[in-house]
Amino acid sequence: MSTVLECRKLAKHYGEGDLAEPVLREVTLHVQRGEACVLIGPSGSGKTTLLSILGCLLTPSGGELHIAGERVNFGSLRALGELRRTRLGFVFQHAQLLPFLSVEENLRVVGRNAGLERVALNGRINMLMQRLGLEAMRGKKPDKLSGGQRQRVAIARAMLHEPSILLADEPTAALDWHNGENVVDMLIAQAREARAALIVVTHDTRLLPKFDRVLSIADGCVKETPTLKPHAN
């Protein structure tokens, strides 16, 4: 497997000078294609900060981030936007679907934004809808869907442009156990199939056995924790 995500001594602190509060200290991490990782840690430990940096949404105070072998230029907003559009997929805690668009429109807008041509986009939408069981919901608005259904749409949206890296922030937090487990299973399955690196932030330790790697964050450092199951690959 090839490394698709690489952090070298990533650091982040908020504030300046004596008031600077370090959140991440020299985080070094390698994630392979198709690898499913879970990031755990207590509240305030820096999970979301790390996810934001990996998602090219936040500029680190130090260190380097490489995506698919290329160093991320945090100085260029255009380049960061391009990376988010084409290389990264996001699944947010509350799905964050656009409430004024139907399920299909939510997917279509994001797909076009990623540069997919009409035919390819139609194919991807149909395929993902079928796989994620969303076909009956094409024309529905997000407020007509259950929490689990919304997260499935969010997964479809994140996978639409076949990203190299899939980042999910507490995707099960708003769901009951059964739905949450289903959503995580789908996330992992989709990421594996697309050979995308998956990083999921969660507080739910019951989900940990489903992942290839468990990363825990504490005191600004990321440590590998032994998995509770044999490596999936």
Partner: peptide
């Protein structure tokens, strides 16, 4: 605003 933030995060241009 949350929807605009989502669009920005998904790579939409400002």
């Amino acid at each position: 605003l949350p929807n605009y933030a989502t669009l920005l995060a998904l790579g939409f241009r400002r």
